[in-house]
Amino acid sequence: MIVLDKVNKYYGDYHALVDITERVENNEVLVVCGPSGSGKSTLIRTLNRLEEIDSGKIEIDGRDIHARGLDVNALRAGIGFVFQSFNLFPHLTVLENCTLAPVKLGRATKLEARDYAMQLLERVGLAHKRDAYPNALSGGQQQRVAIARALAMRPPIMLFDEPTSALDPEMVGEVLQVMRGLAGEGMTMVCVTHEMGFARDVADRVWFMAEGKILEQATPQEFFANPRHPRAQQFLADRRRD
């Protein structure tokens, strides 16, 4: 589904992504973890071109996403992205947040969009908040709405950029639960997260990143029990100490 081939990115002189070559299969749940500054967020943001790359190739569903003449908006419409800071639109209600894109992009009539959005809000447990504004919701609620908003576009892939890092601990669970549900339905997901429990339970594979490189990739069982790369060992040891 997603193919990365020798992807490199620089910020000035800083080599943020180093020769990334990997694949993500259909229906796979991939967790990307690593210390801060490792390039995890940068990597995931290159997948919907929120960040541009300097060399290499990225293919999604067989198509080069940097091909000339490719419609970036159409690309993004086919990828759901969930941000660390939710980024709900504060001037729109919860329901309007979810229906804006499908309607304005002509993917659905207002009625169809509303119906589907309500289904999604039911699924994330927030149907009763449909007419509320984001600032009346807790962080966990906002993030669940953000997931519903992304799902409203019916994307085949969902990307999560540290979805629970900005949440108070007691709200992390409700968001992870939604994500588990999605994984259970076979959604292709790439998640940058520090939530090792989620990785252990739900991920099909784990990528460990540091200093812009994918240093290790393995199944969660292998990774957590027997990390091979010394940096990965260090990382997990630090985590266990917390």
Partner: peptide
């Protein structure tokens, strides 16, 4: 305006003009 507003609008597939019209400029 926080950068995330434009980013999330674009991530949904809205073009720059549509993102301005429906998300950035109202705020």
């Amino acid at each position: 305006l926080p950068k995330g507003q434009l980013e999330s609008a674009r991530s949904l597939g809205l073009g720059y003009g549509a993102a301005l019209r429906h998300v950035v400029l109202p705020q």
